[in-house]
Simulated assay, not measured.
Amino acid sequence: MSDQQYAIPAGPVIFEEEIKKSRFITRLMHTPSIDTAKAFVAQIKTEFSDARHNCWAFVAGAPSNSMQYGFSDDGEPSGTAGKPMLNQLAGSGVGEITAITTRYSGGIKLGTGGLVKAYGGGVKQALLELQTVQKVPLTCIQLRVPFDQVNLLEYVTKEQGGIISDRVYSDVVCCKLEVPTQLAQLSTDRLIELSKGKIQTIDD
């Protein structure tokens, strides 16, 4: 997983155009995993099952993580739809995004170059309308915290831009922190140092 923050879609986008009597409808959606990307594709393919093609591409994780890429030409000539769509997504710097383009054919052939331009261009135009927010990757840290150190824990967690996501009370407080991945080691070291070793990490 990338420890760098990156842009993700703030909401869905729909871009529609007609090219040589073929109707192309491109949808962009925030999909934070491969499973959610595939579920979105399945939803659109079911909803628009009367269309001749529902071609798609996704970047399901960080923009730089090619292991999270996927695409399909869905019956169009190989390389004319899914790959041009993916190229637009991968070059956008936006992560956790799926594009699916629904085509209703108008009976006029576009040729391979025309298809590449139509599918890639549709995603390019949709991306121009996309609003994004920044995602800061988080790391979970588990800690044993004496009761008299809880205030210190809360102070440092807030200082580092994290949250306390869970607390279990026994003879101490067992806490789960979620802090920006880039600050995880610093946060842990700072808590241990300031508590003089009273706050301890819990191994998974």
Rank of each mutant, 00 (worst) to 15 (best):
D171M: 09
Q68P: 10
I108Y: 12
G161W: 07
K109L: 12
G93L: 02
L186C: 09
A184W: 00
L186M: 11
L89N: 03
A126T: 00
Q182H: 09
D171Y: 08
S170V: 03
R190N: 14
E154P: 09
L177G: 02
Q68W: 05
I97D: 10
I97C: 12
P137T: 02
G122M: 02
T132K: 14
G107Q: 07
K198I: 07
A126M: 04
Q88R: 11
P77S: 12
Q88Y: 05
L110C: 01
V172G: 12
I192T: 06
V123F: 07
D148L: 00
R167H: 11
E154N: 14
K83L: 13
L128C: 15
R103E: 04
V179K: 08
L152H: 10
A90W: 02
L89G: 11
L177T: 01
G161I: 00
Q160L: 08
Y104P: 03
T112G: 15
G114C: 01
T139V: 08
I192N: 09
G121E: 06
Y69E: 00
P77M: 06
R167E: 12
Y69N: 15
L152K: 01
D73L: 03
V179F: 06
V173T: 14
N151P: 12
I141S: 08
M85H: 07
T112M: 09
C174D: 13
S195Y: 02
D148F: 03
S105H: 14
T101V: 13
G95Q: 02
G197I: 00
R167Y: 08
P180W: 02
G107F: 06
R190I: 07
I100H: 01
G79A: 08
D74P: 10
K196I: 04
G121Y: 00
A126I: 04
V94H: 05
K124N: 13
V123H: 07
L143V: 07
P84F: 03
C140F: 10
L115D: 00
S165K: 10
K124R: 14
T98S: 13
I164M: 11
P84M: 07
S165H: 09
T181A: 15
Q182C: 08
Q134Y: 11
R144Q: 13
A81L: 05
G114I: 01
R103G: 14
M85P: 01
Q149C: 15
V133S: 14
A126G: 10
Q185K: 13
V150H: 13
N151R: 12
T139F: 09
E76A: 09
I141W: 00
D189F: 02
A90V: 03
